[in-house]
């Protein structure tokens, strides 16, 4: 069974019994996460923090104090922040109440073909951002024969150069977001609706509560946890939007930066213009912002995930 002549074998067995002990095993199980966390999160974030105070050029790295951070207050970055914030707010306004009401409709007792419509409305989410934006880029084309121009033509409007005007290009972006995410958010709200016991609604309607009263005083409060979840991921999704803007204009360049997002600006500085120190400063500011948002959310709403 064991070979006393071989020390290495014994050491090996010692290591084995160490690794196999129930006290050590859990650490072995979670070690991949800890490794990835240190190598691909902690270390890079620390080195970024250091580089954000430097100019980084090949073979020449200098500390320049907070210059990278003060440089952040330039019109282009502020334009990018404004674009991302406006886009996020528009998607929140449209993509939370709409899907919530649609989910209630789908969930109502009067509805037939619930699963069919749930699946059909979900199909746009299967397309990648690249393919979806390619389609919308063509739908919102400038030619008079492109779909959107034909549709507004029916109402007597002249063709519009959709992607060259600030407001209409945002309409295209928001339209695209609604197309892709309505079905997904409906899924979230439907899963939230399953948690509302039917008896609550029934006894309320026996007490004479109208449909609207039931929606505002029973359904909405009980959908609070899932709404907070959808709100959170929508804020992250909106603020980190990049691919849609990149694809809609065929590159990271849109006329007058009308479609530039925060991540687009980070990509431009960090990769296209190789301003690594400055890019790091942007990254650190965004990270602090995300941490602040998480912290606020955990404090305001508690660890909503516990409720699941």
């Amino acid at each position: 069974m064991n070979n006393p002549n071989k020390k290495s074998a014994e050491a090996h067995r010692g290591l084995q019994s160490f690794l196999y002990s129930p006290k050590i095993a859990p650490y072995v199980f979670i070690s991949p996460f800890v490794l990835v966390f240190i190598v691909f999160f902690i270390y890079p974030v620390i080195s970024t923090g250091i580089m954000s105070f430097q100019t980084v050029l090949p073979g020449k790295t200098e500390f320049i104090g907070v210059e990278n951070y003060t440089n952040l207050f330039n019109p282009t970055f502020l334009k990018a922040v404004q674009n991302s914030v406006v886009y996020t707010i528009l998607t929140l306004v449209l993509l939370i109440p709409g899907p919530m009401i649609l989910a209630c409709f789908l969930n109502s007792k009067n509805m037939i073909g619930k699963n069919f419509f749930r699946s059909t409305l979900f199909i746009p989410a299967l397309t990648s951002a690249v393919v979806a934006t390619t389609i919308f880029r063509l739908i919102f084309g400038e030619l008079s024969g492109s779909l959107m121009n034909q549709i507004i033509g029916l109402f007597g409007f002249k063709p519009i150069k959709w992607l060259r005007i600030q407001e209409t290009s945002f309409a295209a972006l928001v339209f695209l977001a609604c197309w892709r995410w309505t079905g997904v958010n409906i899924l979230y709200f439907l899963s939230g609706l399953q948690n509302i016991p039917e008896e609550v609604n029934e006894s309320a309607s026996l007490d004479g509560a109208t449909v609207w009263q039931r929606f505002f005083y029973i359904t909405m409060p009980m959908l609070r946890p899932i709404t907070i979840y959808v709100l959170t991921i929508s804020i992250y999704g909106g603020m980190s939007m990049f691919t849609e803007s990149y694809m809609l204009w065929g590159s990271n360049k849109s006329p007058k930066d009308m479609g530039l997002t925060i991540i687009g600006y980070l990509y431009r500085q960090g990769w296209e213009q190789n301003n690594i120190g400055f890019g790091c400063a942007i990254g650190i500011v965004l990270l602090l912002f995300a941490l602040l948002l998480n912290f606020a959310q955990l404090n305001l709403f508690g660890l909503f995930r516990k409720e699941e």
Binding site: V39, F40, F41, Y43, P44, V45, S47, T48, M51, T232, Y236, G237, M239, S240, F242, I263, L266, G270, I276, G279, C280, I282, G283, L286, L287, A290, L291, N294
Partner: peptide, 15 residues
């Protein structure tokens, strides 16, 4: 889980 990957992509890229 609560930090969008895009935010740390520059440090990640350097790594």
């Amino acid at each position: 889980m609560m930090i969008p990957m895009e935010i740390i992509m520059l440090p990640l890229y350097q790594q």
